[in-house]
Simulated scan of single mutants.
Amino acid sequence: MNSDHPPATTAREREPSEANVRALVEAFYRRVDDDPLLGPIFSHALEGRWDAHLATMTSFWSSLVLGTKQYRGNVQEAHRPIDDIEPQHFARWLSLFLNTVEARYEPAAAVQFMEPALRIAQSLQLSKFGWEYQIPAEQQELLAALKRRRTGDAPEPRFPERPAAEPFPAKFVGKPKDEQ
């Protein structure tokens, strides 16, 4: 994966489009590839397949956000072979994704990505760690805030405070991998 970063833009998109969804996916996965926690996992899982993965993720997000119905896959099955995923990896993925979306889209458009991302993360977490796994309260609160924002019951969602580049703040509850 190419780690060259394009210059940061200050203008945020008002509406998702095929072009800016592709740009979001590419920017996000550059950050993932450069990340010391996630980079090694993704590099191993996607060795020689980065371009195909970016195309799949673009069609996935376009299907979810734009309704293009291009994605043909199973999210749970795609992640099942990755054995070395732990709760802190989900936290870091969410942090990078939410920050990338927030930087690129106006709040009303950002919610269209953030709410599904949090729901998908919950589904993957429960699938990976078992039904007794407790989704971090901060993650649940953010999802509720995004839902209120989408339905017009609240102003722009307030994100939990965290230092720049820090993982999504969460206390993880569940069984450590060696106790499963």
Rank of each mutant, 00 (worst) to 15 (best):
I85C: 10
W61S: 09
S127M: 09
S59D: 15
E132L: 15
F90G: 13
Y29K: 10
S17H: 02
P81R: 12
P167T: 00
A23L: 10
D51M: 05
Q134H: 05
R149L: 04
A154C: 02
R150Q: 10
G67D: 00
T100S: 10
Q70T: 03
L98Q: 11
K128H: 08
R150G: 09
P160M: 00
V173E: 10
H5R: 14
H79E: 05
T68K: 00
Q140A: 15
Y105P: 07
E77W: 03
L46Q: 09
P157Q: 11
L126W: 01
L96S: 09
V173F: 06
P136H: 06
K69V: 01
D51R: 10
E179G: 09
M114G: 04
A8G: 10
F113D: 02
W61V: 09
G174M: 02
G73L: 04
D33R: 13
E138D: 11
E166G: 09
G130H: 08
T151E: 15
W61K: 07
E141Q: 13
L118T: 07
Q112F: 05
W131T: 14
A110D: 03
V75T: 13
Q140C: 11
Q76N: 12
S123H: 12
M57F: 12
I120S: 10
R119S: 13
P36R: 00
L142H: 01
G48I: 07
T56V: 12
I82G: 10
E18M: 07
Q112E: 12
I85K: 11
L96H: 05
M57T: 04
A27Y: 00
P81Q: 07
P16V: 06
L142Y: 00
T58H: 14
V32S: 07
E132Y: 04
P40H: 08
P87F: 01
A23P: 00
E13N: 05
F113N: 04
P163F: 03
P107Y: 00
Q122V: 11
M57N: 04
Y71K: 14
E156Q: 13
A117M: 02
D84M: 08
S127F: 02
K147N: 08
V32W: 01
V21K: 05
F168K: 02
Q140E: 15
L54P: 10
F90Y: 15
P16Y: 05
P40W: 08
Q70R: 13
E106Y: 00
N20Q: 01
W50R: 13
R104W: 08
P7G: 01
G152Y: 07
A144E: 15
A165Q: 13
D34V: 08
A108E: 15
R92M: 15
P40V: 15
A170R: 07
E13S: 07
